[in-house]
């Protein structure tokens, strides 16, 4: 009796192990829902709104992929992750896609075993201080107490920057943006440092944003983008080209309002291939031919997504800068759809 229970348990466990290696696209389609890792809350990028629905620039990527794969932008299960838990969550298969202002670095791509699907925001690390401190440059920060989120590139850049500039500082390690904000506002640290976009978003949620300045120094390159597990090329391609579709859509003037009209055919073959009225692009990676149309209809093109969530008309007020289309002098450049 004891024996049979034991062997039975072992057999069940073995079967379970075999199933885990399945292809991501299949398992997402089978479950009918996309597990998407986001931040624990950073206004403009990913945070739940008053009615508990997730929204933001990174959330848009999740919804676009869900729309492309499942035809339903709402079929997303958002998993909040911290700087420390995000990679374990992705590697272990708890999430299928991580869209949490994550910097594309060599070791994350190569050593940690992830594939970055592109860049949805070109950023750099900055510093925010209370205006009352009268600090105007990061060089004046000798002896300051600095709040940083652990498990981030921020932590390493900061150590390098202060070392090179021979400035001493006291790091206060913090798990989430919300805690960092609370510690910073209570004055438990003099400086908050993270991606400049994150600083702008954090400052926008303060009661008196004007009391805080963002210092001019940008001390690193932080190309932020969505990533997936290495080894499933089909899934990586889907995420990569969904992002590219949003970027290309802006370039070609396809928006969430005119997409259904344009989908019936235009005299621009590139748009036709993108929206599926010509060619079989979707079928090539196992999706419907209107995948890109679905994604654009759900969240708008890259420019719309930017403007709605973090652009100059929002409290966060980020300028396009490096994130403008290449035709406008920015770095957003989608490879051809053909």
């Amino acid at each position: 009796m004891k024996k049979s229970v034991f062997l039975g348990a072992a057999t069940v466990a073995c079967l379970g192990a075999g199933a885990a290696a399945a292809q991501t696209l299949e398992s997402v389609q089978e479950n009918g829902v996309l597990n998407c890792g986001v931040s624990t809350g950073l206004t403009g990028f990913s945070s739940p709104n008053a009615s508990g629905e997730w929204e933001g620039f990174d959330v848009g990527i999740c919804r676009a992929v869900a729309a492309a794969v499942l035809g339903d932008p709402m079929a997303v299960n958002f998993v909040p992750t911290t700087g420390q838990t995000r990679f374990t969550a992705l590697a272990s298969g708890e999430i299928d896609l991580l869209a949490r202002n994550t910097t594309w670095t060599f070791s994350r791509d190569v050593d940690l075993g992830f594939s970055f699907a592109g860049v949805n925001y070109y950023d750099g690390q900055g510093f925010m201080v209370p205006r009352a401190l009268g600090v105007s440059s990061a060089q004046d920060l000798d002896g300051a107490t600095v709040c940083i989120q652990t498990g981030t590139t921020t932590e390493l850049n900061l150590a390098d920057y202060f070392r090179v500039n021979n400035i001493s500082y006291e790091p206060v390690p913090i798990e989430t943006n919300a805690e960092a904000q609370q510690q910073y506002l209570a004055g438990a640290c003099d400086v908050y440092t993270t991606d400049a976009s994150g600083l702008a978003a954090t400052r926008a949620s303060f009661e008196n944003p004007g009391d805080h300045v963002i210092l001019p120094e940008i001390i690193s390159k932080e190309p932020l983008g969505p990533l997936v597990r290495q080894g499933d090329d089909q899934w990586a391609d889907i995420v990569r080209w969904t992002l590219n579709a949003l970027i290309a859509a802006e370039e070609y003037g396809v928006t969430s309002t005119n997409v259904s009209e344009l989908a019936s055919g235009t005299d621009n073959p590139e748009i036709n291939r993108l929206l599926g009225s010509e060619g079989e692009l979707g079928a090539m990676f196992g999706l419907e031919n209107d995948w890109a149309q679905q994604a654009i209809a759900a969240v708008g093109n890259y420019g719309e997504l930017f403007e709605q969530n973090i652009g100059e008309s929002t409290p966060i007020g980020l300028a396009r800068g490096l994130n403008a289309q290449w035709t406008d002098g920015g770095l957003m450049y989608a490879p051809p759809f053909r």
Binding site: Q84, F87, P173
Partner: peptide, 8 residues
Amino acid sequence: GITINQTG
């Protein structure tokens, strides 16, 4: 924490 996170 940090070591695991940075080295995987």
